[in-house]
Computed example of a mutant assay.
Amino acid sequence: MDELGSASSPQLPVTVDGAEEDAALAKSLFLTRKEVIQRRLRRVRQLRRCYRTHYWALLEELRSKYRDYSWTYGKSPFKEDNNESENGNPNGVVNGVGGGEDVVRCRFSGCKTKAMAMTQYCHAHILSDSKQKLYQGCRAVAKNLPTGPSFCNKPVLKSVVPAACPTHHQFGERCLARALRRAGLGNAIPNNRKPTVKLHVVVSEFVHQIQKQRKLALKETALKVETE
């Protein structure tokens, strides 16, 4: 087995370390405790080396495939010739860079970005795909309109909790740190972004924020009634 070879390359038979010694002791009826421990330790060390070599081979193969995936579906430094797409190709399919494969463009109107794998939309417009099950819109309020709140709605994975894009997630952390400082707790969020304060303090601060928002909403409603 090559130390950093491909995991899919043909494997050669592995020779067990100390095979000559094991063959000499194969016909023995009894082995001492020291001999058993030495044989097990020798085989465990060899197995660990095999696992380590196989792990790095898989990692190299993963890096190679990820590089190919990023080159095909990501943002390539080269811009392909879009003459075929502009001359009536409805699907926006052009030849890929150097690979000879077809690259699908995003079907969203006006978008020329490469589509993600197994779909016809790019990451920015993946929510336009009614069949996708992995992404949801960011639920952070971007703007308050007279008709109601307007959400950010940038695509984020459904496994992300809370459902917020990186920008609004960082904004929420800053608001939490500011609220904790206002409560007299100082810089309670360390570099690992895990609060060290007690849960009841955080809950009371959230309740205070909710009550404040409700009071503002009632005040705006009362002003509208008086105006009418």
Rank of each mutant, 00 (worst) to 15 (best):
C50N: 10
T196Q: 13
E220M: 11
R63C: 06
W56N: 05
R182N: 13
L25A: 15
R33H: 12
E86F: 07
C122Q: 03
D22V: 11
G100Q: 02
S109G: 10
D68T: 14
S64G: 08
L62F: 07
A179K: 06
K27G: 11
E86N: 09
D2T: 04
E80M: 12
V14S: 09
V161H: 03
A183E: 09
P149C: 01
H169R: 02
D102A: 15
E60I: 08
R48M: 13
E21S: 10
V14F: 09
S9K: 08
A26Y: 12
Q211T: 01
V203G: 00
Q46F: 06
A19F: 14
T53F: 03
K79V: 14
S64M: 08
G172K: 04
K219H: 10
A7W: 00
K212S: 12
V225H: 02
T72M: 05
L29D: 14
K112T: 12
A117Y: 08
G74E: 00
R48A: 15
M1G: 07
S6C: 02
A117F: 10
F108C: 11
W71H: 11
P149W: 00
T72G: 02
D22W: 14
S150E: 05
Q211D: 03
N144V: 10
K131F: 11
P146R: 03
L216S: 15
L31D: 12
M1D: 05
Q211F: 00
E228V: 04
V161G: 00
E220K: 11
N191F: 07
S64R: 12
D17M: 14
A222I: 02
S150N: 03
K133F: 11
K114F: 02
C138Q: 02
G92N: 07
C175D: 07
K215L: 09
L4C: 03
Y121C: 04
T32R: 11
H208Q: 08
V36T: 14
H169E: 01
L157M: 02
T72H: 10
R107V: 07
L41R: 15
